[in-house]
Structures are given as structure tokens and as C-alpha cells.
Design a binder for these strands. Sequence first.
DNA 1: TTGAAAGCGCTAACAA
DNA 2: TTGTTAGCGCTTTCAA
Lengths: 329, 329
Amino acid sequence: MANIKQVAKEAGVSVATVSRVLNGQSTVKSKTRIKVEEAIKKLNYEPSMLGRNLRNSESRLLLVLIPKISNPFYLEIIKGIESTAIGKSYNILLCETDSNPERENIYFDLVRKKMADGIISMDPAVDMEALTKLAKRHAIIQCSEYAENSLIPYVTIDSEEAAYRAVKHLIKIGHTKIALINSDEKYLYARQRKMGYLKALKEHGITVNDDYIYHTQQLGFEYGQQAMKKILNLKDRPTAIFAVSDLLAIGALKEINANGLHVPNDIAIVGFDKIDFSNMTHPTLTTIAQPMYKMGKIAAEMLINKIQGKEVESVILDHELVIRESTSG
Amino acid sequence: MANIKQVAKEAGVSVATVSRVLNGQSTVKSKTRIKVEEAIKKLNYEPSMLGRNLRNSESRLLLVLIPKISNPFYLEIIKGIESTAIGKSYNILLCETDSNPERENIYFDLVRKKMADGIISMDPAVDMEALTKLAKRHAIIQCSEYAENSLIPYVTIDSEEAAYRAVKHLIKIGHTKIALINSDEKYLYARQRKMGYLKALKEHGITVNDDYIYHTQQLGFEYGQQAMKKILNLKDRPTAIFAVSDLLAIGALKEINANGLHVPNDIAIVGFDKIDFSNMTHPTLTTIAQPMYKMGKIAAEMLINKIQGKEVESVILDHELVIRESTSG
DNA sequence: TTGAAAGCGCTAACAA
DNA sequence: TTGTTAGCGCTTTCAA
């Protein structure tokens, strides 16, 4: 395969001139430019990113860390990241961490070894200590998930407020016995969403029933199903469920259906995330919509700015309650 | 950040020796090795892939082309690819083509520009002409989707046989009025699955009813829903549906449920792919399971072999009919 | 407007 | 067992 030297020779110019043409510099006489372009065409030349990247000391690759690629919540965010990245000549490396520090470290290594220029972390289980350390020498942004008091910039929504609105909606339509299917409270978003839940109950004078609060180890249908199984076994069964993720809500819904109960008449459900599938369940799921595409877009812009050495500020985006069949007969 | 030269100086050896230690060559005296390792630790040195990649003329990046990242069918395949790739010190670049030749071309460029060492294509809509041309100079493997008579190696299942079995199952449980929700027949797998459908009907002396055959533009819930809407409007309604993708089947199921009909009593459904969701629907979905993880694993192995200049042979894997509630009262 | 030359960080051939 | 050195393909400084 041809290299820049051969093109230069073919065009009868120096490699510097070829490089200038490649990079669209205006200091090249158009006659020379044409000669070079013809040589490029003739030799079927494609500039190698390997040489360019070494010279520029960059890889033009962005790492995106997610815990589970199977969680559809991340899909739109990733799209937002990618389209922004591509627009600025970056590509993204999608990394599933499985919330496993070892796998995480493999990906961190990619940055340390200059194989990637920066990281967008969406893993709530990320090793914050390691991440913070890495952030001293490398560009890192947190997206959706973040750590309080962290110096790493983030883009997210107000989870507490969103949960508060979701639960308030359930109260407004007449429910007082409202269960919470939460994920592990070691995650900030889980704590925040619980706060919102408690705030709504308190505001309406509803006593908190500890039997109504469940935690799952992971986000996934099965976990929602399991939690719902226990809830259905309660003597004093709740009439509404707030799940902190659509996946959990869908699992819960599945279990309710399987027991011959009716949603929303017997039990109403609210989820969180507005994944595509939440509109395919029977009944469709009331849920909280996050501006996922926008979030991804902003995260990518923040990261690229950071890579370029600019100052970057954290951002909190709006959310929206989407009322569908699972809370309205 | 430290480079190899500084490490060499610190350790009092040459860069060649440092490189040898880095690459685990056994020709280094252990005393020297220790000196070098200490220097590496002291300077917090991380070898740069940029230099190494240029020198080795490789990027150690594999491109994986999929049409839609939102189709869960690809998830397990991707996992299979990635774990195999990581095991051999490759990373993967997941590329959503949207079946758009322009986006495709952006990704092809990555290979041309040596930013990636090879491609696993899973896009049925890929521009085969462009792909074949690219395959002359670069390593390419087709996974799941492939072109007949193409010289590019592939790993896949026997789609016709799988469809045949699915439809035969419906016939065996008593159905004769069986509709087909197919995707666009410009795709090979769509033609093959239709062949299987026809073969099963023919074998049992069932006349083909053209009103029972539908094509969708894309794979997605909505398209299955739309097709089902039309089917439900038929005067002589079928009693069973074979959809060539779980996504279509789930959309169809949604529409049937929404019309107050019962699956499988009123209408039975078989899908294809055994995506996770197919076990979360109400009722759960009978479907064809493909060995997705294995398929991904093999594709990655084939590609890496190809990159290393080895000969590679196409592979056809087994599938399995998974009978669940949507075809058994 | 163009060219010569240095150098990004690494590996490997060759020599010692 | 180790060192010297060329060179992978590119960009950019400096000089002309």
C-alpha cells in the first residue's frame, strides 16, 4: 500500500506538501494541490492513522463504559455520544464492565497506554478511587451516574426530583400503599430515588412501611420478578409499585400478569427510563423519560472539550413523567 | 509522561532491552529484567500503543458492523466476539450502520486508514460490492448474515431449516392457517426463512395463501404491530403466526393482546432469535434459539486468523426450537 | 509557496 | 545477553 513518500515522489513534491494537501491547508498553490490529488488517486493512497496518531500523540478514540450492554437505557445515550464523536472525527469504544473492577481496569489501561483519549463513564459501580486517580492525567466525564463531591465533571438528571414526581403521580390517582422496588443503595441514584419516594410519601402524610421497600442486586427483568413475587406474598399488599428502572418494572409486571392480577386496576406501576420496550408491554408502562440522546451528546462534547484542555462544567438536565396505561385504567 | 528512552536511561540499559522486557522475551538476564522493572515502576511508565502500533503496522482494533444497536439479537454475539478479542489483545469498535451506505463507508474508511485491522459484518443490508472490494486488501468475516457465492468467509445457521422446523411445530399442534411476518426479501435470510415456511406447508399439503404473507421494512416492534393489524382485519383470519424475528413477534403479540384476543388459544405465535425479552412477554414466546455467543466467538477467531494470514473456512452452526407459552395453552 | 529534516515511541535486524 | 541503529508514516518547524 502506498505511503506519503510514494505520493510525494509521484507528484514531484515533498512529503510536507502532500501532508499539507491532506490536511487542507490553504498555503498550497492550487496547481500543486491538483498534482498531489492526482497522485493520490493514481496510487489509491489512503493516509495511515497510525503514523498520524503517533505524531499527534492521540488515538481519536473515546471509551464509553457501561455496566451492561443489554440494558436498553444506554442505547440512546450511546447514539448521542457517537454521532457527536463522529462529527468531530472521534470514534467510540463501547466497553461493558459488568461492574467488574478487573474488566474496568483493562479499559482504564487503554487510556493509560494512549489507545484512547478519554472516558465517558456510565457505570454506577465504577471504582471511584481508580477513576479519580486516572482523571488526574486523563480526560474523564461521568454521564448519568456520578459520584457526589467528585471533581470529575458529570451530566445527569435530578433523580430525586424525578422519583418524587413519579410517586406523587401515584398518590394523586388515589394510592397510599405504594411499594418501592429499588436497586442496591450503594449506588447514588438508588439513594436519590429512594429520597424522592420518601419525600412524596411524607408530603402527603403517608407512613412509610418498611415491608414495601425492596432492593435488587442488579437491574434486570428477573430481579423485578423476584421482588414482585415477595410483594405479592404480603398479607397487606400494596396497590402501586414504583420501580427505579423499567427493566425492574417490566419484570414486576410480568409477575403480576402471571398471577392473574390486573394492571392498573389491582396494582398500578411506574417505571423509570422510558426504554423502547416499555411501550410494548401489556399494558404500556408509565415511566420517567430522561433526555438520553441529549445527555450523550453533551457528555461527548464535554469530553472532547476536556481533551482539548478546555474548562468543563457539570450539567443537570430535565426529565419528564410519561403517563401510560399502567397507571390509568 | 515517561517514554521508553527515559526508562532505559533510568535502568542504565538500552531501549532495546526495555522493549524486550516489555514483550516478555526470555533473552534478558533476570538481573537486568529486575533493573528495568524497577525503573518502569519508579517512572510510572506505561508503554504507548501509538508507537507500538505504528511500528507493527496494526491497530489491534476490530470493527463490528451491525444495522441496529437496539436489536437485542446482536448482544450475545457481540459478547462472544469481544471476549474472544480481548483474550487475544484486540478491542472491538461497535459500529451501527443503520443500513446506510454512507455510514458504512465511514467505517470502511477506518480499515482503509489502518485504524482497524479487520471487520466482522453482521449487516444484511451491507453493500456487498464495496465489502467484496475491501476484502481484497483487508480481513473481513460475515457473521449471521452473509451473501451467497461471496468469497468472504461466514459463520451462520441454516435459516431455511430453522424456519421449516418452526412452522412444522405449528402444523403439528393443529394449525393450518399460518401467517408469515417476514422482513424485506432483499435480504437472504428473509428469502431463506420464507423457503422454510413454504417447504413446511407444502410437505403437509397446505395451500399457500398469499394473504397470509407479510413483509416489513425493518425489524422493530412497530413493524410487527402494523403487520398484525392488517392480519387481524382479514375475513379469514389465520390461527398462527410465524415471525422471522422476535421483535416482530413481540409487536404482533402486543397487537393481539390489545385486541382482547388470547395467545395461544385464539392465535399462536412463533418468533426467531430468542432474545431476552421473549421470555418477559405475556405469554412467553416460542422461538428459535441461535448459538449466538458461540457464533460471535467463532467469528472473532476466524477474523483474527485471517488477519494473521491464515486460511479460514465458513461455518454453519446448529439452532434449536424453544417451545414456550405462545404455542402451548 | 515549498522543501529538508527532526522526531513522535516503539520493535527488530544486526552486530558485538 | 545486550546495544546500536534504522525505520514504521506522519506533521511541523525552520529556512529558503
